[in-house]
Structures are given as C-alpha cells and as structure tokens.
Design a protein around this nucleic acid. Structure first.
Lengths: 197, 197
DNA sequence: GCATAAACTTGACAGTGTAAAGTCTAACTT
DNA sequence: AAGTTAGACTTTACACTGTCAAGTTTATGC
C-alpha cells in the first residue's frame, strides 16, 4: 500500500513495525515497559510473532539498539553541523551526546546496556556514531600518539557525565541543560584540546 | 545461635539475609538473576516473605544498593590507603573505582541504575563514598572556585570509563586492567591536577 | 496446480511480581 | 498467669512475562 518496501507475506514489514513499537514503548514507559508481548500487540500481531524475526527479547533489543544508533548519530551530526573551530565542534558533539541522553534515556540504556558490543561485533551503526566522535577528536591528537587516547578520554567523560546527570546523582533535575553542570566539564574538555601542547 | 543480633521473631534477621542473598545472586547470574523469589528461596522463606521487609523488588534493590555502597567505599578507601601524594591518591581512587566495577558489575549497575538517588535522597552510604572522591579531589580545586567542578569532572571521567570498559565498547576484554586503556585516561587525570595552575 | 516454505496463530508452560487472606509466634497487658 | 495483640511468615491466587510446540494460513517455486 505505502511507498515503502512491502515484500513479505502477511503484515508487510513486521520487523520494522516491531522495532518502531519497541522504541515507542521505550520512550513512553522506560526500559521496564519494553516487552515482547506489548510490541506484538502494538504492531497488531499475536504475542509469538516476534520470535520469527528476532532471537527473543535480547534479539529485539539488539535491533532496537541498531536503530537507536542511527538516531544517536543524527544528534551528534546535527550538533556539529555548521561549526568550524575544532574545539567548538568537540564541545557541540558532546552537548549533542548529552541532549540525546536526556531526550531518549531509554534508547541510551538499550544502546549501551544490552551487551550489544558482545552480541554484534560488526556493528556498523555503532561504528558510524563512533566515527563522528573520532572525527571531532582528530584535531587534538598529539603527534605520533595513539588516536584512541583522546577518543577514550572524551568518550568516557561525556558518557559518564550523561549517565550520572541522568540518574540524578548531581542533585539537579535534567531539564536545565544550559546552565547546568555541563558547563563544568567544558573546562576539562578544553584541556583535552591542549594535551598535545 | 550465632553471635549476631537475633532479636526478631522467626527467622532471626531475614532482612539482612535477603540482602545478602540478593548480592550473591547478583554476582552469580548478573542483574537478570536477581529475583525476589530466588532471594526468598535462598534465605529459606516463602516467596512472599520479602514483602514484609522491602517495598517490592525496587525496595530490595535500594537495600542492596545501600550495602553495595559500603563495599564500594571499601574499594575506594583501601585503594588510597598509604598513598600520600595527591595526584597518586587521585589515580589510586580512580583505579579502585574501576576495580570495583570489574569485580562487582552487578552491584555497580544496581548502585547507579536503580534510581536510588531519586528514591533515597538521604543516602548516607552514597554520600560516604562520594566524600572519598571529594577528599582526593580537594587538593586540585582552583582557588575560589566551586569544589564541585573538579569532582564532577573526575567522577564523570572514571564512571564513564568504567561502564564503557565493562560493556566491551573499547574492544578489549575486562581481565587485563594493568596494561589496558585505563592508563590512557591517567593523562587526562593528570590534567585535572593542573586545572588551577 | 501442487508441494513447499515462510509468516503468523493458538495453546501451553514455567517463572515473575504482587496482593489478600490465613496461621503461627512472640511480646505485651491487665 | 491468661488473654490479647501485633508482627512474621505462609498459602493461595492472579496478571503478566518469555519461550516452546504444535497448528493454520498465505505466498512462492516448480
């Protein structure tokens, strides 16, 4: 019916519908609200239908994480768009990381919390997101040193900050991003930029 | 029977036994293995007994997190013991943070992943652990600035690194701590020490 | 047109959290 | 000392979960 690819038999493309339903449930009710049976019901199929497309619940989570990485990459890319100065690009991408986490906390936990790195070694969508981070880190790599050094530092910093902020450990609610403690890691981010000096 | 406090009626002190069983289950089978009914069975009581001591599963997790923070604090304290130079203390505590995460991944996820900060605002055990981090950060606070700045930076850095390392995102298995990428965040940790200069 | 394979349904089972009611034990009251 | 009361625990039950084993329908291939 639609202009989309409708090749399979009954439903159309149930696989995509289930992933979409799963993401919606994740955003509505959090990680506990993500259920195989609820995804099936929302897609209009019986409760056992997902088994023909995913390897159980963990398989669905891997598929959701794959799609989640695309959304994640969008946040990182659009945050850096139109910004030229390397240090400003680094700041912007990190801010995009945080914004994604605050906007899609359920997706974030599925992306990094489902052992996806172990279950899906060839994770192109994840690599794509990582390469965005890598590209904004590249200008700050000290000459002749391992590029991973900077990437791991920046990634750890913004990842930890996002998760701690999200879990309320910093004692302030998520809403105020602008004046929040995010500005306080900018200083360290700037230091990352001087590591090669 | 034992020298422990046995004041309550039937079991002795079921509350502690349930928390202990929960921690054991967590270490054996991970977060998915932590179940009210399994905790009850391991403590030798019926499956509905925990309801009289905790507010459901989330209540048990809060209790486990409270005990987990004590264990966590032990790692941080014993890591800093006998080390005098401020920068070495900072390094050692961060290494203790990582070691705890690698040794007790289930506890780590319960501590920071059960919304404990929201459910238990007066978290003394958590504050105690935070104060250890705070004390090793203190020597590096720039004059006249908000102490939180350094703490948030260091905490974000080591927290993010631990979680990413644990989930295999860095592409190397957890076992080798010594020569792993941990040494690569030491450089940034050292930069934290020069922020005031 | 028919065999075959895939998509999906139906039914069942073990395991989960949780609530309501009942039983027992210890402590408290008079 | 006997009876009352409150708490600890059990039993029973229910809704919900993931998962398996069969069926049933539908589209594809020959």
């Amino acid at each position: 019916m639609t202009a989309e690819t409708k090749t399979t038999h009954h439903h159309g493309n149930l696989k995509e519908a289930l992933v979409r339903a799963g993401i919606d449930l994740l955003e509505e009710d959090g990680l506990d609200g993500l259920t195989l049976r609820k995804c099936a019901a929302r897609a209009g199929v019986s409760h056992a239908a997902p088994a023909h497309h995913f390897d159980g619940l963990s398989g669905l989570k891997v598929a959701i994480a794959t799609e989640g990485f695309r959304i994640f990459s969008n946040y990182l890319e659009s945050a850096a768009k139109g910004i030229d100065a390397p240090i400003d690009r680094l700041r912007a991408v990190c801010r995009g990381y945080l914004t994604f986490g605050l906007t899609h906390p359920g997706l974030l936990s599925v992306i990094f919390g489902s052992g996806l790195a172990a279950q899906k070694p060839d994770n192109r969508e994840g690599d794509y997101a990582y390469n965005i981070l890598r590209s904004v880190c590249a200008p700050f790599i000290p000459e002749g040193q391992n590029p991973q050094i900077i990437e791991i530092q920046v990634w750890s910093l913004i990842h930890g900050f996002t998760l701690l902020y999200l879990s309320g450990e910093f004692g302030c609610p998520p809403p105020p991003i602008e004046d929040g403690p995010f500005d306080q890691i900018i200083a360290l981010l700037d230091r990352v930029g001087t590591l090669g000096a």
